[in-house]
């Protein structure tokens, strides 16, 4: 196929294909729901119909979804959670920021009840996290309970960029003071 289609354009009969992103089914037909290029993909499982999808040509505003890796800055900490503004979803920067919260039980995988937020995150830290749920009215719920998630950039009390020493400590290169953070594991 690979045609340019617009919303509402009839693509195929409902029985022949399975709907996917960019398409929807109504009565006996499958229609496009976005402006883009229609494509037919092979079926996911044996015996199923092939999938029809429309890919948007324009970059779409990324919204965090369950399982997406997000990067952002911590704006507020308290005893039970750390709030951050989500600035980048995956590798796509957001046109407008979202708000997410890392609750105390989602900071790390081990010894979850002994976590102290103030020793894991500080306001101003840049953190990489994963979205675990759509959360409540104000924020998405995030988690850093994996090796590659956590603080990727932080400034020491003296104002210099710190270097991670272990998964829970960072050191200031100038004053040699050690501070506690839940660090992300650097790519080797």
């Amino acid at each position: 196929m690979n045609d340019i289609v617009t919303p509402g354009q009839r693509l195929a009969h409902a029985g022949d294909y399975k709907v996917s992103s960019g398409t929807y089914q109504k009565d006996d037909f499958i229609y496009a729901s976005v402006v883009g290029i229609s494509q037919i993909l092979p079926p996911e499982k044996e015996g199923e119909s092939p999938i029809i999808t429309v890919t948007r040509h324009k970059e779409f505003n990324p919204i965090p979804d369950v399982g997406s890796i997000v990067t952002g800055r911590i704006i507020r900490v308290n005893q039970f959670s750390a709030t951050m503004t989500i600035m980048v979803v995956g590798t796509a920067p957001c046109k407008e920021n979202f708000q997410g919260v890392i609750r105390v039980q989602d900071v790390r995988a081990t010894e979850r009840d002994k976590v102290q937020i103030y020793k894991s995150f500080r306001p101003g830290d840049v953190v990489r996290a994963e979205v675990v749920s759509l959360g409540d009215a104000r924020s998405y719920y995030l988690s850093t309970a994996k090796n590659e998630l956590g603080v990727i950039f932080a400034q020491s009390m003296a104002g210099y960029t710190m270097i991670p020493v272990s998964w829970e400590e960072m050191i200031c290169p100038k004053t040699k003071v050690v501070e506690h953070r839940k660090c992300a594991k650097p790519e080797s």
């Binding site: 617009t6 919303p7 929807y24 109504k26 976005v34 402006v35 779409f60 505003n61």
Partner: peptide
């Protein structure tokens, strides 16, 4: 709305 890529039933 169509230009923004928001899914719609029809224009």
């Amino acid at each position: 709305l169509a230009d923004a890529g928001i899914e719609m039933l029809d224009a």
